[in-house]
Nucleic acid binder design. Structure first.
Lengths: 241, 241
DNA sequence: ACAAAAGTGTTTTTGCTACACCCATGT
DNA sequence: ACATGGGTGTAGCAAAAACACTTTTGT
């Protein structure tokens, strides 16, 4: 890997992705352990190429980490508060960390560039955790799925960013459901319900939930799903075309 | 005015403000006619100082144009689509315009900086049109209030930005009402209703509207307002402290 | 007395919640 | 037959919309 060319990217502007993963009825967030410094955690992020749009950059960053394509990403907010300008407790850690990292790729100019003041644009996605093949990014030691309640202290304002993303995800989940290709091609109402319960961290009674979802008028009912269990077979649904 | 120092600002990142003004039951938007080029219109905007947060930058830009302080500004979205990168039909117009503008302040390097690819962060505000003292910005010939339906073609994606701002404004206007210090100190329910009608471009029946607003529990009722009209005097209200 | 507009009360509708009940399936 | 969970229908409640009416004010 050659020199990191700062001119390829927009300076002082980054994208941070809050990647929500769903598995076993649980909602998790993908975070990365930075490979320099002890106990430094952050959201997977990246820079914007001069040649790409910001949505495109977010998709690329998501794909780099998860291998996933065609995932619905939503921009929810830009962060550029005064707390990001100076006096960041992490800046010096990052500086010294990068100095011992890869001096061919990151010279002093690159390190200055990376540790300067940044504004970041937040995107979130919701993906099927089983479909993900994690690949670490440049500065990362490893990536890890953590449930929202157990997030460690992260660099900069990344904890705030996750909170804002979670709030945005909960707003109008109905309309986003189709976008996230999270559920299998055919699924039962229970599976939809469990997804909602994971996102809202709250139980929904089946009958009313069914009415609400069917009322959205986006599902079509297929056959039944025989699981072998000694109970009535649930219907299968899929999204209308 | 001295040289324009590009180093004072974050490069390739700007803020554009959609300033909604209210007067005579009508909702207008503040747009500026650029002083170079014919028929070039755009939203009032500016750059972010290295020393300020992005919200702070937006406030400063709003104050520069309107003289207004302590106005509630809301960030609604960042724009950085591929249409903003190259092939912008406006770029060359701006370039040639700036070359004949003020060569002391804007040298070739500054012109390159200004006409490079930009990502912008959109903010909107809602202000009392009567309280505004318009002051033109650097590149502006004049500023003008235009109703949303009559917006001219604007540079870049500024028409899209206004549409997105209008949509954001309509969401949860209730909660933002107090923030915009838009209404006079004491006002009638009718005035509130007319404001809503301007924002939503739709009529509201008085009785139900009154119930809804009083239900928000943010207003206190004062005396009556005698206008001399031959009808019952309406109550005056103000926001609770 | 009357016109104009403010204000209040009542009914209707709607959407959501809670409860009760019936149905299919495999042992 | 029965335990298990799936599915449906009805009653209850509260918020919103629609409708009808009374009150105040100046001419």
């Amino acid at each position: 890997m050659g020199k990191f060319n700062t001119e390829d990217y927009i300076a002082q502007l980054s994208i941070d992705c809050v990647i929500f993963g769903y598995k076993n009825k649980e909602l998790k967030v993908l975070i990365s352990k930075l490979s320099y410094g002890d106990n430094l955690w952050s959201l997977p992020g990246g820079y914007i190429l001069q040649t790409e749009g910001i949505d495109q950059a977010a998709s690329r960053i998501l794909k780099e980490r998860t291998g996933l394509d065609n995932i619905y990403l939503e921009q929810f907010r830009a962060f550029g508060g005064p707390d990001r300008i100076i006096g960041s407790e992490f800046r010096d850690l990052v500086r010294t960390g990068l100095r011992n990292f890869d001096s061919n790729r990151f010279d002093d100019e690159a390190i200055d560039w990376i540790t300067s003041r940044f504004v970041c644009i937040g995107y979130y996605a919701l993906v099927d955790l089983n479909k993900v093949e994690l690949r670490i990014g440049e500065f990362e030691e490893f990536l890890k799925w953590v449930s929202i309640a157990e997030l460690p202290n992260m660099t900069h304002d990344h904890n705030k960013i996750v909170a804002a993303a979670h709030k945005a995800l909960r707003q109008n989940l109905d309309e986003k459901l189709i976008g996230f290709n999270l559920l299998p091609e055919e699924f039962t109402m229970r599976e939809v319900k469990e997804l909602y319960e994971a996102v809202y961290d709250k139980e929904f009674p089946m009958n009313n939930f069914q009415k609400k979802i069917l009322g959205l008028n986006v599902l079509e009912r297929l056959g039944k799903k025989f699981t072998g269990a000694q109970n009535r077979a649930p219907y299968l649904y899929r999204f209308k075309k």
